[in-house]
Structures are given as structure tokens and as C-alpha cells.
Design a protein around this nucleic acid. Structure first.
Lengths: 349, 349
DNA sequence: TTCAATCACGCAATCGATTGTGTAAAATAT
DNA sequence: ATATTTTACACAATCGATTGCGTGATTGAA
């Protein structure tokens, strides 16, 4: 078996006594190739199991069929679902997806961007690392007109497309809901404020309090750069031991919200009667925890799909439409953890 | 700004009045290049921001720095963690990772394998689709000596490396645990039996029953090809309405096990007193559900890392050591859902 | 001083597909 | 029958990096 050698258009050309250019054109159904020649080429290519060498084509055309994705951690529900959307859409368009994790570190993010740039990706989907405050490593893509789309964790400092949700409005609605459930001392566990998502959610929270004439108490507002389970427990302990402890908490993610419920259970605070809790993301755990956690849905898969389509769609244009921001709808999911007036399991109001 | 043109070794060569081959060799620290020349080349390359064109190098060397991954769904805890491990290890070795989802469909898996093969990946990590029973689409990799490693869901029908856990033993231990907790009517919710993981877990279950002289009741054994929440509820309903309903259930994944607990709660069956439940995977939900779910841990991230290292490690060898199977340890995590004798939250026995 | 190593580098082919340009032959028009 | 298109293909350059082979110059040895 001479499986070592891949079959090329030269092999086919030689066997058919035509030139490689004819084979190349025949394979792409070029008009200037005769019908019999085309058929013969197609047939032989089929028989020999010809596989076009995409590397060679890429070298010649200076194009690849690959897009890159940079995210914090792939093994998080929102992220992996988002990537699933990217992969599905890209795959449908015949593109490969290279993923790389920043592990929420700025340094890694820079290194990943370099590596992907060197790999000549045709587009890049990014959800920023928690740490990142400098965005220079993305400029090379902008300069070379490589489509760059930010998802969820975005920045205004770059002239790039964005696919986001309305975090302000979602934060507002979540907080408003707690108010309508009768909460008067509403706390907020937020994330790193340099990240738009956490900043905007907090702003929505503040705006809701203001609108309903509820005094803002800085003691009730914590900023946690990790928002893990463990950190969530720590913040819960802090909040629950305040002199005048909160009767409602809006958490910037579900992980922290689950921790609040677990802490409350441990110290005997009743949820939602004594403490209403609402999270963010609609992670799978929200329906498992007892009581089920109210939250805000993120259309993760769809965000990924749209981001991929943005990246691929604008590829053709010479004049790129920059700074397009696509805002997707969120939904307030009211479950038992925040239903102080009545006890539904399904969405109310 | 003439950012359109990438800078190449030819540009550097011309500017320094040397040949491109000298530049190429200087950049790789070849011994036959003089020190001053090397320094000059490195310096200019640095200044001009030279980025080696990996596409051209790939064409010449017939090698890429890319490995592929085919999995069912990326947005599942075990899978995304496994990929995280693959990505981390591959990245450290300077490799890119292309992922593609089969969505558990055979057709997609075949298409993905083709696409990755055409992309000239240097290695492939696969966790088989639920449906797959024919493995011909992987033969092309074997024939071309492209490292192929199966993870978790493997097959014996191919001469390839495998990274697995001892599913039989894990199934045995899980069932034995239920027996030791006093269960006498132990049911099993299993997955598609053509997949080794589900087959072996069931065999472990059967072996444990046999060893402890417990009669095997076929009514207690169900095979579900999906093992989703919904399907888990259906199977729970079936099992709990049997004339002599089980007092213990070993589920082949945590998703189904959680459904069992939820169903039991709904119909007022006490877990673990009336029904002990144990799952598999140690998904995040296992610590959220009430009562916490006993389960078997999967070292997901490590499996991914090892798979990646297998793929990359054997790259150098000319004579490939085939059929190496690496078996990783699992751990029985005993939580409240199966602790009928005593109530611990931590591991017992 | 002369011959042989060693050093430092250039030449040119190669990887496979693509594409602008050129050119016979066949088809159509005048 | 001659001029003009059209058809159908070949030639050769190109994309950028790599590498076997060759060669002039320098160094060391005898």
C-alpha cells in the first residue's frame, strides 16, 4: 500500500494527459473546461480518493477556513453552550473552529491572540478574560481587517462587532422583581467592574432601587472578581451577618446565587420568605437547587451562532461595517427562590 | 500603512543582502550560520514584526500544528472539562485544537472525521457518538499513521490508543455500595449498550449482584439511549410503579440520577430511606441536589490532558505503539442520597 | 607553504493548488 | 473561402518556508 503519498492534481493530470491547471479548473467546474474532460477528471478524482490539499490552497489564496475562539474557561455552562453555537454555525459554513482558553488571565489571552493570529484565522470570536483591561492584542486583527466579534464580555475600546444582552435592563428587571416581591433591603453580589456585564448589571440594580425610592446602602453591594461557589459563600456570610441583614439578593451569576441559598439553608434563613434570591445565566443547577432559583436567561447557543455568522458574514465585504452591536433578548425566569408572595414553580407576573 | 503585506523571510533577506535560506536557517538557529548574521536577522525580524507563515511551513513539511477533537456535545460538564484538559495540554505543546461536535449522530461524526482529515490534523481525540457502530471513518487516520486516541467512549474494533476509566469496576463498586447500605432490590438505568461505558457499568452492576447472591430482575434493568432529564423521569416513573419497586438505583449518569431523586420527591418516596440513589460522573449538580447525590468521579480534565499527550507524544515515533490503553482511577463519592445507614456528607466506609 | 577541514552562505528545487496569459483548433459569421 | 469568435486547454509564475547540494573563503594542520 502506497498510502504514504496523498494524491494530488498532478497525479490526476499525468494519468489523464492533461495539465494540472486543467484538473484544478475541472474540479471547480470552470467554464473553460470541456465536458468530457471534466467528467474524466471528476471520475478519476473520485476513484483515487482525491482530497484537495487545503494547506496549499491556503498558501496560495492567503485564506484559511478557520476561525478562532478565545474564552475564559470552556467548562462553564454558558461558555460551552456559546461555543456549541459557534461551532454549529461555523461547521455549517464549512469552517473549522479553534478554541483557546484564557483561564481569565490577561497574559494567556494575549498569547492566545498571538497564536491565533499566526495561524491565519479568518475571524475571531472573543469573550474577554476577567482581568483584561488593555486591548492592544486585538488591534492586529482590526488592522488586517480580520472580522472580530466580542460576545457577552465586550469592550467599547475597540471598533469591533458585539453580541450581547441588555445587562442593564436585565439587572433592572431582576431587582424590580425583588422589590415587587416586597423586598426592601436588597443586596447585590457583583463581579469585576471592568467587565461590562457586571458593571451594567449593577447599574440596572442601582437604577431600579432609585426608581422605587429605595435608599442605596453600600454595605449591601459587594464586588467579587471570581464569583465562584466558595467566594459566593464568603460573600453570603458577610451579607447575612450585617446588622440589618438584606431580605433580597440579586447575584450577578447563578453560581453565587446558589451559594447564597446554600448558606441561608445552613444558618436557617428561609428562602424566599426571609431572603429572596435571584441569579443570572439560567445554569442547569438553577432547577436542581431547592428552592429552584429565579434567574435571567442568556440565549447562549444563539449568541454563539450569531457571533459566528457575524464573523463569517462580513468576510465578503471590502468595506466592513464596524461597531455593529447585536442585543439579544433576555427573559426573567421567576422561580420559587424569589417568590415571596405566592409559590409558583413556573414564571409568574 | 502598508499593513496589507505580511513580512516574509524574503523581505528580510533582501534588506540584509543575504539569501532567504540564510534567513530561514538563522531563525532556527542553524549551526552553519554565522553569529553576526544570526543576530542581524533576529534583530530585523523582531523590528519588522516578522511572523512565520505556518501555512507555508505546513505545506513544505506536510505537517500542521493542529489536533482535532470529536465529541458528542461540548456543552456537557464531563465533555467540556475533558476538552479543557486537551486544550491546556495541546496549547502548552504549541498545538491548536479544532473541535467538532457529532451531536451523537453517526453521520455527523463521519463528516467531522472527513473534515478534520482534510484539514491535515496531526492527531485526533475522539469520544464516540452514541449511535456509532461502524468505525471505518477512522481508518484513514490509522492508515496514515495519524495518532488516534479514544477517550471514555471507545471501541475495541480499532487499533488505537484509549484513555478510559474502569467502568466495570466502578459499576461494581457503586452497586456493592448500595448492597452494603442494605438495598435488596437494586435497579439500573443504563445507556446504549453498544457504548463500552454503559455496557461495562451494567456488567459491573450485574457482577456485584451475582457476587452478593442477589437475584437479577430484568424488570429492574432499563436501557435508555439518551439519559437526559426527561428520559430519566420516564424511567423513574416506570421503575417506581413496578409491583415490587426497587429500593436502590444505580444510574449510568448523574443527569438520570437527579431525575430519579426529583421524581421520588414528587411522589413522596424518601431518598435515601426508601430509595437509595447513586449516579455517575460527579457533575456539578450532584452537590446541589437535595439530598446530595452519591456518584463516581471521572477525572475529566486529566483524561483530556493524557489523551492530548498521547496524541502528541507518539508523533515522533516511526513505529507506533498501538493499542495502548490507559486506565485512570475513579473514586466512589458517597453522599446522602445513598447513605441509608448513617448520614454523612463526606465519603464514608 | 600546502593540503585538508571547517565555516558561512547561496542556488534551486520542492510542497500542491491557483490563475493570468498565450495559443492551437473548432465553430460561427461574413 | 476568409475573417472572427469561441472553445479548450497548456505554460509558467506565485504563495513562503525549507533543505540537499555546492562553493568560495577562512582556519588549522602537516
Amino acid at each position: 500500500m502506497k498510502n504514504n503519498k496523498e494524491i494530488t492534481i498532478y497525479d490526476i493530470a499525468k494519468e489523464l494527459n492533461v495539465s494540472p491547471s486543467t484538473v484544478s479548473r475541472a474540479l471547480k467546474d470552470h467554464h473553460s473546461i470541456g465536458k468530457k474532460t471534466k467528467k474524466a477528471v471528476l471520475k478519476l478524482a473520485q476513484e483515487r480518493g482525491y482530497q484537495p490539499n487545503t494547506i496549499a490552497a491556503s498558501l496560495r489564496s492567503n485564506k484559511t477556513t478557520t476561525i478562532g475562539v478565545i474564552i475564559s474557561w470552556i467548562n462553564r455552562p454558558f461558555i460551552s453552550s456559546m461555543i456549541s453555537g459557534v461551532e454549529t454555525a461555523a461547521n455549517k459554513a464549512g469552517y473549522n473552529v479553534i478554541i483557546s482558553q484564557s483561564h481569565d488571565s490577561y497574559e494567556n489571552e494575549v498569547a492566545n491572540a498571538q497564536a491565533l493570529f499566526a495561524s491565519r484565522i479568518q475571524g475571531l470570536v472573543v469573550s474577554l478574560a476577567m482581568e483584561t483591561t488593555n486591548y492592544d492584542h486585538f488591534n492586529q486583527f482590526v488592522k488586517k481587517n480580520i472580522p472580530l466579534v466580542f460576545v457577552d464580555r465586550v469592550t467599547e475600546e475597540l471598533n469591533a462587532d458585539k453580541v450581547v444582552i441588555d445587562n442593564f435592563s436585565a439587572g433592572f428587571k431582576a431587582t424590580e422583581h425583588l422589590i415587587q416581591e416586597g423586598c426592601t433591603r436588597i443586596a447585590h453580589i457583583g463581579g469585576a467592574q471592568q467587565r461590562n456585564v457586571y458593571r451594567e448589571r449593577r447599574e440596572g440594580y442601582l437604577a431600579a432601587l432609585k426608581q422605587y425610592n429605595i435608599e442605596i446602602n453600600d454595605d449591601y453591594i459587594v464586588e467579587n472578581p471570581v464569583l465562584s461557589s466558595e467566594e459566593g459563600l464568603k460573600e453570603s456570610e458577610y451579607l447575612m451577618n450585617l446588622p440589618n441583614r438584606p431580605d433580597g439578593v440579586f447575584c450577578a451569576n447563578d453560581t453565587a446565587a446558589v451559594s447564597v441559598i446554600q448558606y441561608a439553608r445552613k444558618v436557617g434563613i428561609k428562602v424566599p420568605q426571609e431572603l429572596a434570591v435571584i441569579g443570572f445565566n439560567n445554569d442547569p443547577v438553577t432547577t436542581i437547587i431547592d428552592p429552584p432559583l429565579s434567574t435571567v436567561t442568556h440565549p447562549a447557543i444563539e449568541m454563539g451562532k450569531i457571533a459566528a455568522m457575524q464573523v463569517l458574514g462580513q468576510k465578503e465585504h471590502k468595506e466592513i461595517v464596524r461597531s455593529q452591536t447585536i442585543v439579544l433578548e433576555t427573559e426573567l425566569l421567576i422561580r420559587e427562590s424569589s417568590s415571596r408572595r405566592k409559590y409558583h414553580t413556573t414564571s409568574g407576573d
